[in-house]
Each structure stands twice: as structure tokens, then as C-alpha cells.
Amino acid sequence: MNVMRRSQIPLIIVGIIASLIMILPFFWGVLLSFKNNSEIFSNPLVLPSKFDFSLYADTFNKAHIGRLFMNSLMLSIVTSVIEIGLLFFSSFAIARLNHKYNRMSDLAYYMFLSASAIPVLTLLMPYYNLALFMGKISGGLLGVDSIWGLMLPYIAGGIPFMTLMLVGGMKSVPLEMEEAGIIDGCGLFRLIFNVEAPLLTPILVTLFIFSFLGVWNEFPIASIQLHNKNFFTIPLALAFFKDQFSADYGAMMRGVVMILLPQAVFFVILQKKIIEGMATTGIKG
């Protein structure tokens, strides 16, 4: 037992150092959020002169954080639900129908693999042109300057990579479970929803969280397509605190803290599901 504990000491030390490296920037950002520009530039590493939480209320009101929060919340939930539904069927087709459509299944798999390697910044103009086109045929609902116009690029960008992860999870489900369902009279849709879905719940929850946080934090596409501040998402809140010649860095840090805090709470509450889903899909953290 003592030998095992001694062998674990280096791992514990490395874990503590890694944790500090990740936590200290956030802690420093919280301290900076209680300072004004003069304090930040003169003494960035010292404690603020006072912890005035009314600054957070002022920032919340000035940036209309409440409205932006609801915009991001609605967009993230709707996009993630649609995305999970679509990738579930695409993953099932690749993982389970490959014996019947082997070449098409392999082609689809490698297409998703290739698409997941495309940097999102190279697609900003195609996504913008897509939004212009969809705006014309949808009466502006899915176009530029609409939060719902962001759904299509978010779904298109998220499905390839998450499909590959879900395919791995589906292949881990024993075929005997599906064969038993077929013997009991399950059709394709009953097989998917009554057999596959319950067994893959941890993976689906994890992928939903990844999708939700990906949409919540996305900045480049939203900054290109949204111009009306009433439709801004939460990452664009920082634009309220800078202009052409100056920026309120203290207010920007308060905005960052308010953006990150819900995510931290989200992870703390659902960390067991996330770890379980990552272990099932074979994702390594």
C-alpha cells in the first residue's frame, strides 16, 4: 500500500500543477473584473482596492446580459436537440447498416471524417452566403441578423465529428440486443428508440452537452452574421464594452466571468454523465 501511494505522488503533483495552470487564469480574471482600466494597467497582479459587486449589476444592465442569455439559451437548446436527432440516425446508418450497404457506409464515414477536419474559419463566407440564400426563401427567419440563421452552420459544423463519436458507441452495443428486439417484433424505428437509445443515453447526454456548449461559446460565425444587438448571443456581449479607440477591460472581464459561470455550474452538476459518456465513446480527455 505504501509503495502504491509513493508511486502516485508524482501523478498527484502533476495533477495539482495542471489544475493550478487551468484555475489561475480564471481566478486572475475574477480579480481583474473588480478593477477599472487605471488599476488594471498600473497594478494588474495585486488585489483590487475593493470588491464592489454593484459593478456586476451595472455590467449586466449595460450589456443587456439577460436578453443575450435568453438568445443563447434558446439557440443552444434547439440546435442541440435537432443536431442530436440527426446525428443519431446518421450514426445508426453507418454503424448498423454497413453489412447491407458496405461501400456507401464506408463512403459516408470517410466523408464525415474529412468534414470534421475542415477549419471553421475557412467556412465563414460560405456560411454567410448560405444565410443570405436561406433568408430569401424563409422570409428572413433563417437569414442574416436572425439567431435562427445560425442553426444551419452550427448543425452542419457539429454533426460530422459527433457522428464519428456516436458510431464508436453504437458499435459497442452487442448485436444480440438488436437481434432480440427484432425477434420481439421491433421495426426499424422501434429498434432505434426502444433498444439503441436507452443503451446510449450516457453518450447522447455527453454529446448534447458538447453541442450545447459549442453553440453557447461560438463567436466567429455569430460575429459575421449578427449585426443587430437585439439578436446578439452571449459571447458577443463583450462588444458592448469596446469602441474604435478604447475598451473597458474591467467590464469585459466581468462579462467573461458571467459567460463562464453557467458553464462551470453545468459541468459540476453533470460531470458524472460527461465522464461516463466519454468513457463509452472512447474519448480521451
Rank of each mutant, 00 (worst) to 15 (best):
F88S: 15
G181K: 02
Q225E: 08
S172P: 02
I12H: 12
D145H: 01
L238H: 01
M22L: 14
L86C: 10
E276W: 02
K50N: 13
A247P: 10
L20Q: 02
N36R: 08
F89G: 00
F60H: 09
L191I: 00
T201P: 01
P174W: 01
V14R: 08
R254G: 13
F212H: 06
A156V: 11
V120D: 06
Q8L: 15
P262Y: 08
T206C: 12
V215C: 08
K242I: 00
L164P: 10
F193G: 00
I269D: 03
L166Y: 11
L207E: 05
A251P: 07
M162H: 11
A222K: 02
Y154S: 06
L121E: 12
G157L: 05
T59M: 13
Q271G: 04
G214L: 00
P174C: 02
S7A: 14
V195G: 01
S114F: 15
V120R: 10
Y56P: 10
K100H: 12
N102F: 09
M4R: 15
P235H: 05
W28C: 03
S76C: 04
W216P: 02
D106I: 11
I203K: 01
G285D: 04
I192V: 14
V268H: 03
F34Q: 07
M1W: 09
P160N: 06
Y249T: 01
A117Q: 14
K242C: 00
G185F: 03
R67A: 13
T206V: 09
L68W: 09
R67E: 13
L20F: 14
L20N: 02
I234W: 06
F112V: 00
N228R: 08
A279N: 15
Q8W: 08
L24N: 00
I16L: 14
Y127F: 15
I221K: 10
G140E: 04
S90E: 00
I40V: 14
V205Y: 07
L20W: 10
L121W: 08
F26H: 03
G149V: 04
I17E: 00
I182V: 13
I269E: 03
D58L: 06
I259Q: 13
F219M: 09
M278R: 11
V268G: 04
G169W: 01
E196G: 00
P220K: 02
L152K: 01
F210G: 02
A57R: 12
R254W: 07
P119Q: 05
P174Q: 03
F53L: 11
P44Q: 08
I118E: 02
F133E: 07
V30A: 13
L121T: 12
A95Q: 08
A95D: 08
M22W: 12
F92S: 05
W28H: 11
L213Q: 13
L11N: 12
F92R: 10
M74A: 11
P262E: 06
G168I: 07
F193N: 02
I23V: 15
M177W: 06
Q271W: 06
K242Q: 15
